[in-house]
Amino acid sequence: MIEILTTGLPNTVQDLGRPGHLALGVTHGGAMDRQALAIANLMLGNDPSAAGIEVALHPFRLRTHVDTAVAITGADCAVSVGDRPCPPWWAMTIRAGETLVLEAPRVGARSYVAFAGGLDLPPVMGSRATDVKGSFGGLTGRGLSRGDRLALNPAQCRLPAGGFGAALEERRGAAASVIELRVLPAAEFDAFTPEAQAAFTGSEWSITNDANRMGYRLSGETLSLLSPLELLSHGIVPGTVQVPPSGQPIIQLADANTCGGYPKIVTVIEADFWRLAQAPVGARLRFSAVSIEASTEALRANRQRRRDFIAARNLMVGEQRAP
């Protein structure tokens, strides 16, 4: 059992989402930074899709009422367990009665807390992810509140004394001042003026206050169509960049509506979703075109990194078990 001490409603229970129900109007949802949640789970020997907590509003505090282990990934923020500070992307044991604290991020926007065994909640439509719009999944379909208590699944979790950390090559180094996102052209790309097409990849964009799990509204140059378009409603995927009549783009994200009607200029590639998940309000973005082959290769590399990570972790825990 864990107890939430300090939180905000944007903080929700998430797993890797509920694919397979788009035709019922049910969004995939799940962690905005899927890689961060998956790695946190893998650090503890969990299935990568075990349910944890997505922290979008810091500071966040919880107390455990059992001896267990936690892994914190995602944003680079100051973390402490009891009175022990711990580095970012770290897995460690936590004793009954101790408090876990996540302070405001230095870099990034969303933290993930995974627990040995995962949060014990009933799956709804195949997932424990919170669908706030539909009010289901997670903890009765809502964000976390102070005083909420969540049960943990039983687990045997082996960790080295003092815990261990993970470092992902692509996330190393100081935060870039401008976040680079790779894009593929979408259905109406050619319906935009040459000036709009050039401005889209040639200029910088910033994330406005209107930013949540459904999507981010951006501000920058005004993007115009060659002539007005009336589209019939159509299925859309996370990463879709729509341009409503205001000419200011919207990036659809994890909890996007399954259908939309605005013209679509590009789609951000899946391998870069984590960069968006970790981009705070006010962050500056720049888009660059890639080939479909490069997009697929980036996805393949992600999948390989996850396999390498599992192998490395098993090797480490196995060695630790040896006499």
Partner: peptide, 15 residues
């Protein structure tokens, strides 16, 4: 008309 919706989806538009 067929268009890409990212590297893992296609939109088939018959309108």
């Amino acid at each position: 008309h067929i268009s890409l919706a990212g590297s893992g989806a296609l939109l088939l538009d018959g309108a």
